[in-house]
């Protein structure tokens, strides 16, 4: 069968690609579009390193087919910063050392951004459960959770 010709909006840009049925959105991002910020840690939806937004919904890109994405709007880690300006979460992760090896970081950031857009005042428990699908083996999650909560406070304009 011929490849599928797919048009979608990726990080704000109209994007076209060809893919086979078996190729996931993650495969497409990494292998066809050369965006390797989304990582493959498991290919089964268990690690969250490939997290992206599809039509404003947080998903694992390893569990979405490329062929499904025609007409969709996809946002990956590469679209998170605004030009030269990092997203506040990216900046906070740097300042608070919320990453060690950094392999889970893109997925964690995409997921955390989705949380803060939905809930700008999450409790520690809410952050932990929201991010339960983003495995991190380095940090013990402590600094990640703190950075997300502290970004939320900044974005709300709370005094420190």
């Amino acid at each position: 069968m011929a490849k599928h010709h797919i048009s979608m909006t990726l990080n704000g840009e109209p994007t076209e690609f060809l893919c086979s049925t078996r190729q996931t959105l993650l495969d497409v991002l990494r292998d066809e579009l050369n965006l390797t910020g989304s990582k493959e840690g498991c290919a089964s939806g268990d690690c969250g390193a490939c997290s992206v937004m599809v039509d404003d919904r947080l998903v694992c890109s390893c569990l979405v087919l490329g062929a499904e994405c025609d007409g969709k709007t996809v946002e990956s880690i590469e679209g998170m910063a605004d030009g030269e300006n990092l997203h506040p979460l990216q900046q906070k992760f740097l300042e608070e050392a919320a990453l060690q090896c950094g392999i889970c970081t893109p997925g964690v950031l995409v997921a955390a951004k989705a949380l803060l857009e939905k809930n700008n005042n999450p409790t520690e428990t809410e952050v932990r459960y929201w991010l339960a699908g983003n495995l991190c083996r380095c940090t013990g999650y402590d600094k990640i959770v703190r950075a997300v909560m502290s970004t939320a406070a900044d974005m709300r304009g709370d005094a420190k």
Binding site: G45, V54, L58, V59, C60, V64, L115, W130, L131, A132
Partner: peptide, 9 residues
Amino acid sequence: IGSTQIQGR
């Protein structure tokens, strides 16, 4: 059923 990401689908 699964994580937040899985819930998206």
